[in-house]
Nucleic acid binder design. Structure first.
Lengths: 119, 119
DNA sequence: TTGACATATAACTATTTACTTATATTATAA
DNA sequence: TTATAATATAAGTAAATAGTTATATGTCAA
């Protein structure tokens, strides 16, 4: 088993604070299932699109997620290269899977897959 | 190896928020080494005594720590019975040991041990 | 019972936070 | 081109946060 890396408290506290928000914590748990684009989050959370974008920006500024534009969509994914990823991953592993929320999206025809149309 | 318990996001987010503060995160890391009383925290953190008490109250209200009065002192300890303890413990395990801070206290004669005098 | 120490609470304040609405930007499609 | 869809940014606001100082409470010892 891989030994857990030590994270200085000065770095751990800000990422915990960031994930100490229900919306952002759910976001990273969703991203653990695979990449998502903004409109999917907007569909999942009962919240305005700017609010979603602002949460994602915070996650990106902290290095927790990566963004990649593809056509009109911007896809977000967990940044596994980030030095804090092991900490984030260990947290996610203790949360319930959010797969269901994505399956609901699929059923309602609002899941974006990169081919790149709604399906 | 014990399987990690799943923690609903509604419960995980608030405790992460609580620990997303450098002072409180350091407090729980210190408590992982053993119980501490308020005056020890006051000595360790460059911060007023009311501020320390307020942080400890938040940790207590969340069920993360226990308090026990012994004479004029109030000792705090990690609440290992709390349902969120496994999550807290897994976080602490990724932080550097805070033993040194306690050893500094001992050297400066400000460590309280329950016998109950300063040593 | 009085003084000193340890801790908690109250009241206040500056800062941060998480939303909102309005608007700008960017890409695609008609 | 122009309209539309997806996303980002700006500006404003109410609520939460973390600190402060002042004061109250509780314990012990002289």
């Amino acid at each position: 088993m891989k030994t857990k890396a030590e994270v200085p408290i000065e770095k751990a506290a800000p990422i915990l604070k960031l994930l100490g928000d229900k919306t952002r914590l759910t976001m990273v748990a969703l991203l653990a299932e695979g990449e998502c684009c903004v409109c999917e989050f907007t569909e999942i959370f009962n919240m305005s699109q700017p609010s979603i974008s602002q949460h994602l920006r915070k996650l990106r500024d902290a290095g927790a997620v990566l963004e990649e534009r593809r056509g009109q969509w911007v896809f977000y994914s967990l940044n596994k290269e980030n030095e804090l990823y092991p900490l984030v991953e260990s947290l996610i592993s203790q949360l319930p899977s959010q797969k269901e929320k994505l399956e609901d999206l699929e059923r309602s025809g609002n899941r974006i897959v990169w081919c790149g149309t709604r399906r």
